[in-house]
Simulated assay, not measured.
Amino acid sequence: MQILKHDLNANKVPTPVKSLHQDTDGISGGSEAGDLFGKALSMASYRPAGAATDGDSIIAVGSPGEGIEVEGVDKTAAGRVVTLRVTAGGAVSELQDIQQEKTDVTGAAEAGDRFGEQVTVVNTSPRNVGSTTSMLLAVGIPGENEGTVVDSGAVQTFSLLGAPGLTDRWIVPGAAPGLPGVPGANQLLGTSITATATHLYIGTPNGPGARGAAHLMPWSNVTGGAVAPVTSYEPGKDGLPAVGKAFGAAIQ
């Protein structure tokens, strides 16, 4: 992956900051065929303690093809996410290697999970010093099996600051955060996510709804606050025409 500034250089193109891959010094892991490092990217501004402004950034890098070794067995395409801090001066450093075999992280790395197929990060309070409740990450895991339900998928949220297992929350239909429905085979939850300062947006184009749906989940549902109602949009309901399919396949 290549990090660029918005400023144009003498060649009238965005100014390069740093080129990164898994063999770059300071980046964990190693480059292997099929890792797909950088398949999903998302960035948010960050104000560290002692800084006057939010001049730094944190980038989440999805690597859904990454194999994770568990007790000597390689779990092919289990997936992982790397978070990077980019300072205002252009220095880049790794913050966390996030995957399901990390201490206290919910779930377990399994072949084909594709953890990191989609990522979205947000700073819910960009003018203030970043905290564990304002710097947030959501990770799509479309190959996750929920019990015996194959490829039902899941979304997992984390804080971008601190150890991943301290704040992670598990989102599947019918669970505590309030996403409606029930897990179903091949729903591939986690293929469509994005975020704003107030809500996590989750697309469910493959069900439970027959034509797909899109859901707006308040961040408080996964950050320890009150669990508020999830707003859902689905063809055939609340004035939306009952036509088409895969509603929610892309959310921006």
Results as ranks from 00 to 15, higher is better:
Thr231Gln: 14
Leu179Ile: 10
Ala176Ser: 12
Val155Gln: 09
Thr133Trp: 00
Ala154Glu: 07
Gly140Cys: 08
Pro241Lys: 13
Thr167Met: 08
Thr148Tyr: 08
Lys237Tyr: 07
Gly239Ser: 10
Gln187Ser: 07
Asp238Asn: 13
Gly190Ala: 10
Asn145Ala: 15
Ser220Gln: 15
Pro177Gly: 00
Asn186Glu: 14
Ala246Trp: 14
Lys237Trp: 05
Lys237Glu: 05
Leu188Thr: 11
Thr132Ser: 12
Ile193Tyr: 14
Ala138Phe: 14
Val182Met: 11
Val139Met: 10
Pro229Thr: 13
Ala138Ser: 10
Ser232Thr: 14
Ala210Cys: 04
Ser134His: 09
Val139Cys: 08
Pro235Glu: 01
Gly212Trp: 05
Gly165Asn: 06
Thr196His: 03
Val182Leu: 13
Gly153Glu: 10
Leu200Met: 09
Gly181Asn: 03
Ala226Tyr: 07
Asp238Val: 07
Thr198Val: 08
Gly181Lys: 02
Thr157Arg: 09
Gly212Ala: 06
Val227Trp: 02
Pro205Phe: 12
Tyr201Ala: 11
Ile171Glu: 00
Leu161Val: 09
Thr194Gly: 08
Ala154Thr: 03
Pro142Tyr: 01
Val149Lys: 12
Pro241Arg: 13
Ser232Ala: 12
Pro180His: 02
Gly147Met: 06
Gly162Tyr: 08
Pro183Gly: 01
Val155Leu: 09
Gly224Glu: 09
Thr148Pro: 00
Pro177Ala: 05
His199Asp: 13
Thr133Ser: 15
Gly165Gln: 06
Gly143His: 02
Asn221Cys: 08
Ala176Trp: 01
Pro173Met: 05
Gly178Gln: 02
Thr133Pro: 02
Ala138Asp: 11
Leu188Lys: 15
Leu188Ile: 05
Thr167Ile: 03
Ala213Phe: 04
Gly178Asp: 01
Pro235Lys: 08
Thr132Cys: 00
Pro229Lys: 04
Trp170Tyr: 15
Ala242Asp: 15
Gly203Asn: 09
Asn206Ile: 10
His215Arg: 08
Thr157Ser: 00
Leu160Phe: 09
Thr157Cys: 02
